[in-house]
Simulated scan of single mutants.
Amino acid sequence: MSTTSSASWASTLSVSASSWSKALEPIRTDGPSAALPSGPALLAHVDDRLDHFRHLDDELGSGEVYQLARSELSLIVKLISSRRYDGRTVDYLHAMASEAARQVAWAAFDQSRPGVAQRFFDGSLRASAEAGDPISGAYALSFAAIQCYSTPGHAGRAVSLLQTAQEQVRRKATPRMHAMLAARTARALSKTGAKKACARQLDIARKALGKGPHDDDPKTLYWVD
């Protein structure tokens, strides 16, 4: 990958994160995000499939997930465009679109397609903002940060993405979510050589995990322990 191309997608990720943060500002509250409704049976099935794809990635890798998640994202977009749903159900659909796009983005990155990954990370953040759901967007940013800190010269950008995520979920996330974001921030900081800051984030992660699981932990964080 050329330095120019990596700088291009990395810069675009930063712009996407900034736009996402600004879009969420009008709806920020001091309380936790409201629980998403279970929705019609079709939506529940879509949610179940997205959960299955997360585990499928653990077992079979990104190649299978890329195609499956992209098809699921297409279905979700069609459901949104159908105008059959409104209110919190539409928010639910946008939150699922955010997760589906994140899965596509992560699979694309794993397949060495960073430009494609960046576009789907952007789509994930846009859907998160439409849903008024900062948790899904912060989760997407935590994976976009891995793309950055895995690319020489972009660890500092990864730190910035994670700081944006942490700020948006500061009063909304469960301890497990805070632990995940702190651990990934520590990883990014380790790439920059900021040893004290890295150790501080690891300490935050340990203390957060020590608070134990919560009933409202996002399903996406099943792997954080």
Rank of each mutant, 00 (worst) to 15 (best):
V104I: 07
V65I: 07
L36G: 05
R28F: 04
A100E: 02
S16R: 02
R84D: 12
A44K: 10
L56R: 13
E99S: 10
S112H: 14
S14Y: 08
V77D: 13
V65G: 01
P40W: 00
G61P: 04
H55K: 14
D57P: 05
L93E: 00
K78I: 05
S71P: 05
S16L: 02
I27S: 15
R70Q: 09
R113E: 13
V104S: 01
L75Y: 10
L73C: 07
H45S: 12
V116S: 08
S16F: 06
L60M: 10
L79V: 03
L56V: 12
T89V: 15
A117F: 02
L68R: 11
L50I: 06
V65Q: 00
S74M: 07
D91L: 06
H45Y: 12
S98F: 01
A108H: 02
V90Y: 07
L73I: 02
F109S: 10
E72M: 05
L68K: 07
M96Q: 15
G115C: 06
S33H: 09
P26T: 05
A44L: 08
I76M: 03
G31Q: 13
S19I: 08
S33D: 10
S62I: 04
L56C: 09
H94K: 05
A23V: 01
D51F: 13
D48K: 11
H55F: 09
K78E: 13
L93K: 04
M96H: 02
Q67N: 08
A35N: 09
L43E: 02
A117L: 01
V46E: 02
L36R: 08
G63F: 09
P114F: 02
H52W: 09
L43T: 06
A117K: 02
T29R: 09
S21A: 15
G31H: 15
D57S: 05
Y92K: 15
L56E: 12
L60E: 12
S82E: 02
I80D: 05
R54V: 06
M96S: 04
G61Y: 03
V104Y: 00
S14L: 15
L68W: 06
D30N: 14
A97T: 00
L36E: 06
F109Y: 15
D47Y: 04
Y85D: 04
D110I: 02
L75Q: 11
L13G: 03
E59L: 13
R102D: 10
R119W: 06
L43P: 01
V90K: 06
V116L: 12
A101Q: 04
L42E: 12
P37L: 00
A97I: 03
I27W: 12
L79D: 06
P40C: 03
L79P: 04
A34P: 09
G63A: 14
R113Q: 14
M96G: 02
L13Q: 03
S71Q: 11
I76N: 01
V116T: 14
S33A: 12
A105L: 04
Y66K: 11
L73A: 12
A97M: 00
D30K: 14
D47L: 05
S38T: 14
L50P: 00
R83G: 08
A23L: 02
H52C: 07
G87T: 06
S19G: 09
S14V: 12
S18A: 15
W106S: 04
V116I: 11
R119A: 15
A44T: 11
Q111T: 07
P40N: 03
L13M: 03
G31M: 12
V15L: 13
L13T: 08
